[in-house]
Write a protein that binds this DNA or RNA. Structure first.
Lengths: 142, 142
DNA sequence: ATGGTTGCAAAATGTTTGCAATGGC
DNA sequence: GCCATTGCAAACATTTTGCAACCAT
C-alpha cells in the first residue's frame, strides 16, 4: 500500500470517529511512514524536532494512541521500560531481541500462529493481538 | 523445591557473587515465596509495608534485580508500563492477558517451545528467555 | 576493618493530563 | 462558532541512584 492510500485511510478513520485531520497528525503519520522498521516514541520526537516540524511531544504520544487504535501501528516490544512501535503493514511477525546490542530481528512462523489459535480456543479466550519476544544473543554478538 | 532449599540456593548465589546475605534480602525472598502466582513490585512493597517488615522500596527493586539475574524470578509481562514478575519454579509457560479485567491465565505448549528453538537455530540466535503474551478477552468477560 | 548494603530523598525516565489558546470543519 | 486539538508545563508512575550511616563477613 502506498503512502497516499494510508494517509487517506487515516483521514477516513479520524473523521469517522468525529476527530480532526490536523497538520500535526499528518506530519506524524508521514514521519512514521518514513521509518522502515521499528521506532521508539522518543526517537520519533527527536526526529521531528530535528526537521523543525512543529509538533510537540504530547501530540506525538496522543497521535500514536490513535494510530494504535486504528491498527496502523503496533506496540511490539516492551523492553527496558520503553515501548517500541512498528508500522503494521506487513504480515504478522515476532521478534528476536539481542540483549547485548539491542538489535531486533523479525521472523514469522505460521505454525506458531496456529498453535496460539488452538490454545485460545481451549481457554475460551478471544485473542486480539499477541507478542512473542525471544531474548538472547544474536549471531554477531556471539 | 521447598522454601529452605530455595533460600539456600539464593544464599549461595549471593555469596558466590561476593555479595551479602542480609536480613532484608531474606525477607524479600520469603515474601516472594509466599506469593503463588504473579506479582507487581509495588504490590510487593505494599505487602511488606503492611507486615511492618523493615525493607525499603529501593531495596525491593535492587533485590528483584538480583533474583532476576539468578533466574529465580522472571519478568513475565510488560503491560500498561508495569512490570509483572513471577517466580520461575514451575515449568516454562506463557500467558493470556485479558485486556478487559486484567486477569492473567497461564498455559504451556511444548510445540511452541520447540518451534522457537528451531527459529533461533535458523538465525544463529542463542536464546536466553522468551515471553509470549496473547492479549484478548477472557471467557468470563465475553 | 573492609567493602557491600541500606534507607532516604532526589533524579531519571517514560507517559499522561489540565488548561488556555488555536484551528478544522 | 463549535468543539476537538495543540503546546506547555505540571503531574504521574515506575525505576534508578548518590550518599552517609550501617552491618555482614
Amino acid at each position: 500500500m502506498n503512502k497516499e492510500a494510508i494517509k487517506k485511510q487515516f483521514k477516513d478513520f479520524v473523521k469517522r470517529k468525529g476527530l480532526k485531520f490536523t497538520s500535526q497528525r499528518e506530519s506524524i503519520l508521514e514521519e512514521i511512514l518514513n521509518v522502515k522498521g521499528h521506532f521508539e516514541i522518543e526517537d520519533m520526537v527527536k526526529r521531528i524536532k530535528e526537521k523543525n516540524i512543529p509538533v510537540s511531544r504530547a501530540t506525538v504520544y496522543r497521535t500514536l494512541n490513535i494510530l494504535k487504535e486504528m491498527g496502523l501501528v503496533n506496540e511490539v516490544i516492551k523492553y527496558k521500560n520503553k515501548t517500541i512501535y512498528e508500522i503494521s503493514l506487513k504480515q504478522h511477525h515476532d521478534h528476536l531481541i539481542c540483549t547485548k546490542c539491542g538489535s531486533i530481528i523479525e521472523f514469522s512462523e505460521e505454525e506458531i500462529e496456529k498453535l496460539q489459535d488452538k490454545i485460545c480456543k481451549e481457554y475460551g479466550f478471544k485473542p486480539e493481538t499477541h507478542r512473542l519476544e525471544i531474548f538472547g544473543i544474536c549471531k554477531n554478538c556471539r
